[in-house]
Amino acid sequence: MKTSKKEKLSLFKKMLTVRAFEQKAGELFQQNLIPGFIHLSIGQEASSIGTCSVLRTDDYVASTHRGHGHMIGKGADPRMMFAELFGKTTGYCKGKGGSMHIADFSVGILGANGVVGGGFPIMIGAGLSIKLRKTDQVGVVFFGDGAANRGTFHEACNMAAILKLPIIFLCENNLYASTTPSEYTLAGGSVAGRAGGYGIPGHAVDGNDILEVRNVVEKAVARARKGKGPSIVENMTYRYRGHFEGDPQKYRSTDEIDTHRKTSDPIERFKKHLQKEGILTTELEDKIKKDVTKLIGEAVQFGQDAPLPRPEDALEDLFVNP
């Protein structure tokens, strides 16, 4: 697919936004200003932003515990995201969800899910709903290489295939399921390779190349929109941070992380492309970075300034009709 200069700059800015959001979230977590636990996707920005960039606002996304990038990509407001991370009333879930349960139904985000592989069956329902309502929406269910080993993955691929549901199974293979290498956990070695068993297309993609991600996901989306059914897309990528913030990461070396960072960082790679094409000047890069810093700074401020919930707010929002 063609990507205009303007679109490319917008993608670049969004990737930087995700990274700045998560770097800031990590800092605030270390300062004990964010409770609970958070999972960062730093290093995976081409996958989240590239994928979401080919979706419409009314398309659905089911996200994961590592979902900040999907949220920003699909159009969620970083201010409400930070407010949620702080457990504040103006957060997306009024402080009831936290990082693992951010949702914004107004832009089609059916929620991040704390259960690995929890998004698949929900997206089956959204796909069925699209089919019954006869719209041309599609749904993307993000998951990691770890979730590919859950029964929900198999059951959902099978069901989406037989019902020809407009769903893209979007694997972000970052080589580790929590702390265990996918080399060990993933039989057959490929998530995309499993597509053959369901008679649906499967694509393994250089998930750190945002333009390549867009190309492949766009084809899968077009197919789904035409009613031709689901696809599996496996974005090969890498996360620089641990499974969770504070993860001692005994399962890999710092050399390994550094190598990925130096050779295949999705933002650096895209930046080189933009420079080569003469789209990105140093001045423009500085301006974009300045804008992003300002945006994230304001989002953090919004979250910090927001009021805490009243303790008894815990008793609200359970039922529509209690």
Binding site: L110, P121, I122, G125, A126, L132, E155, M159
Partner: peptide, 26 residues
């Protein structure tokens, strides 16, 4: 027709499909 739907033997997707469809207007 079309509103009573056969599922494969997959309770996880049967229940999940209810959740996802309910979230999106059904």
């Amino acid at each position: 027709p079309g509103r009573v739907i056969d599922s494969p033997i997959s309770e996880t997707c049967i229940v999940g499909s209810g959740v996802g469809a309910a979230l999106t207007g059904m």
